[in-house]
Computed example of a mutant assay.
Amino acid sequence: MSTVVFVHGLWLHASSWAPWAERFAAEGWNAHHPGWPGDSPTVAEARANPDRAGGFGISDVVRHYVELIAGLDAAEGPVVAVGHSFGGLIVQRLLAEGHVAGAVAIDPAPMRGNILLPPSSLKVASVALRNPANFRGSVTLTPDEFAYGFGNELTAEECADLYERWTIPSPGRPLFEDAAANILPGSPATVDFDAERGPLLLVAGGMDHTVPASLTRTAYKLHRRNTAVVTDLVEYPDRGHSLTIDHGWTEVADTALAWLKEKGF
């Protein structure tokens, strides 16, 4: 028996992982999908209280999950982490720093070393970066911004439904930290590529505007320099950033489950 902790990224509530948690639980996993620090229990409450989310940075989120993982029952077996977007960056740090035994990073936000950011990534990040006050505040996506960053491969109807169901205000600080990752020593977006760690699966959406597949491929190349550890890559050429929550999420979830089983979890 193993335990999985799901880590969401910006603008999606932790409850967006509930279908994944149910699917993993059906396969015998102990599944947890806690939110970030400052998150409210429900989507409605998060929208009503956007200031709660403001000010938290990447390292704050990492520490939050480290504490949560440390509090899990050791009898539940080894812990793996599955993260999407900024959650994908968080789980890579959790893995490299020895807090989890394995990880799946889906469309992960770029870490230090990922130098060339495509224009579409910069367009999405500009939602926060265009206003310095967002460093300490929270940022909410408009329906059009969600459609560009998440739902560009969806029908208008499905995109609108996902926006209404899952989106919440999120802290702007991680986007500022990530934008400066390659110019600031000690960036919280740094992942130790030389760490002795468990296996890592990177998953890319080929049509993703927020984290284009080129960024995930670069992350794969950076990790593969450490030949003493396992790093794998799967790409869905026709999927966007919504691949964990849209109509095709089960395919991605089953890929993660099969890979984890193959790695002995």
Rank of each mutant, 00 (worst) to 15 (best):
I168H: 04
T216E: 08
L72T: 04
S214W: 03
F56H: 12
A258L: 10
A81F: 02
E153P: 00
N182V: 03
P143S: 12
N131Y: 09
V5N: 02
A180S: 14
G77D: 05
E164V: 09
P132I: 10
V191N: 05
L95V: 01
D192A: 13
Q92C: 02
R130L: 14
G77H: 06
A125T: 05
G149L: 13
V80Y: 02
G172L: 11
A103D: 03
N49A: 13
A26G: 15
A258H: 11
R130V: 10
P132S: 12
R165Y: 07
L129H: 06
R224S: 14
K263P: 00
A18G: 07
V62R: 04
L141R: 07
A256S: 12
G137S: 14
R224A: 12
S59Q: 14
D194H: 06
L257P: 00
P237G: 13
S138K: 09
F146L: 12
D60A: 08
G151A: 11
I58W: 00
A75W: 03
N131I: 09
E145C: 07
V252H: 03
R165K: 15
H64P: 00
N30M: 10
E22V: 09
N49S: 13
A160Y: 02
P237H: 12
H8C: 09
N30P: 01
I106T: 07
E251H: 10
W166T: 10
V211G: 05
A180E: 13
A219G: 08
V4K: 03
H209I: 09
Y236M: 11
G240N: 10
G9T: 06
A70C: 04
W36M: 13
E145M: 10
V7Q: 04
M1P: 02
S170K: 06
T42A: 12
H64Q: 07
N182F: 06
S2V: 07
P237D: 15
R23G: 05
F265L: 15
G54L: 07
E45N: 07
G28S: 09
A101D: 06
I106K: 07
G137P: 01
T250F: 07
S121Q: 13
N152Q: 10
C159I: 02
L201G: 02
G71R: 09
G57N: 07
A128M: 08
G38C: 11
L12M: 15
A253G: 08
F176Q: 08
T190Q: 05
P188L: 11
L233Y: 05
P237L: 15
T218Y: 06
A105W: 00
P143H: 11
N114L: 10
A213H: 08
G38Y: 06
P171S: 15
E27L: 12
L260N: 04
A14C: 12
A14L: 07
N152D: 13
H241K: 09
S242K: 05
S40L: 15
E164G: 14
R165S: 09
K261A: 13
G172V: 05
G240S: 15
V139E: 11
A213C: 09
R173P: 01
